[in-house]
């Protein structure tokens, strides 16, 4: 792979995943170009969250391959053992990917700053001073200056989610996965989190996958919208097309159901 310009940030090839009898991803093939911001929409159970969790290697792939910048990060059971990848390789490739969860998943026994600095110190081998300096800067960027020493339980949901964003950014990933990051928040706290992501999209060149129910936000931030159902892509394209004049009836009825935007 000499021509790195042509290598996608993420490449899904023939990916399938089922939980018991339920197929959540069905022979899914898709390239995400470097720097692309993709909003993934769809009814619950459509496989959109699973898609992110497979890239993050939280779920195991049943079949197919997922590559990140041309290097495999997940391989299905159908892949011959000679092409299976070691845990070590996975960890190596995974450093390029960061994820923010619906439930924040902050470490409750650490302060906001420790949440942000722990992985750079343990995984990237940064010095404590260097990690703390970068961590403070990141917390400032997400508007949490002065909250460095606060434990998560003393922060609002919106603040916790912003710490979680800073924590993911501290690993300097080239790809960020946002999994319904505002779904667990009180309505009045949604705006502050979306604003942080908007700023991030504006001021960085990161590739982003955003699973969201916020249609307005998807329209603002994304340059591609993917509409999924039953583990398959129903329709994809630029936001103005998919959200404005969807081709598929299923997309239209979903957009009607989630309400005006």
């Amino acid at each position: 792979m000499t021509d790195s310009a042509g290598v996608p940030a993420i490449r899904f090839t023939g990916c399938s995943k089922r939980f018991g009898e339920t197929v959540v991803l069905d022979d899914f093939t898709w390239d995400v170009p470097v720097g692309r911001r993709v909003a993934i929409l769809g009814p619950s159970g459509s496989g959109k969250t699973t898609l992110l969790r497979l890239v993050m290697t939280i779920e195991r792939l049943d079949a197919g391959v997922i590559e990140v910048f041309g290097r495999p990060i997940a391989t299905g059971r159908d892949v011959p053992s000679s092409r299976q990848i070691s845990e070590r390789q996975v960890r190596e490739v995974r450093r390029d990917v960061g994820m923010v969860f619906q439930q924040f998943n902050l470490f409750p026994h650490m302060s906001a700053l420790q949440n942000v600095t722990e992985a750079p110190i343990r995984v990237l081998g940064k010095s404590k001073e260097e990690a703390a300096e970068h961590g403070r800067e990141l917390l400032r960027q997400v508007g949490l200056q002065g909250k460095e020493d606060a434990p998560p339980r003393q922060l609002s949901g919106g603040q916790q989610q912003r710490v979680a964003i800073a924590r993911a950014l501290a690993m300097e990933p080239r790809i960020m996965l946002f999994d319904e990051v505002t779904s667990a928040l009180d309505p009045e706290l949604v705006g502050e989190v979306l604003e942080v992501i908007r700023q991030l999209a504006e001021h960085s060149s990161m590739t982003m996958l955003l699973v969201t129910h916020e249609i307005g936000f998807a329209r603002d931030v994304a340059d591609e919208v993917l509409f999924m159902e039953h583990g398959r892509v129903v329709e994809s394209g630029p936001p103005e097309q998919v959200l404005g004049s969807p081709r598929e009836e299923r997309t239209r009825s979903f957009l009607r159901a989630v309400g005006p935007h």
Partner: peptide, 12 residues
């Protein structure tokens, strides 16, 4: 979620 966050941060 704590295990998942650890995976996402590539902890050993």
């Amino acid at each position: 979620g704590q295990w998942e966050a650890s995976t996402a941060l590539s902890f050993s």
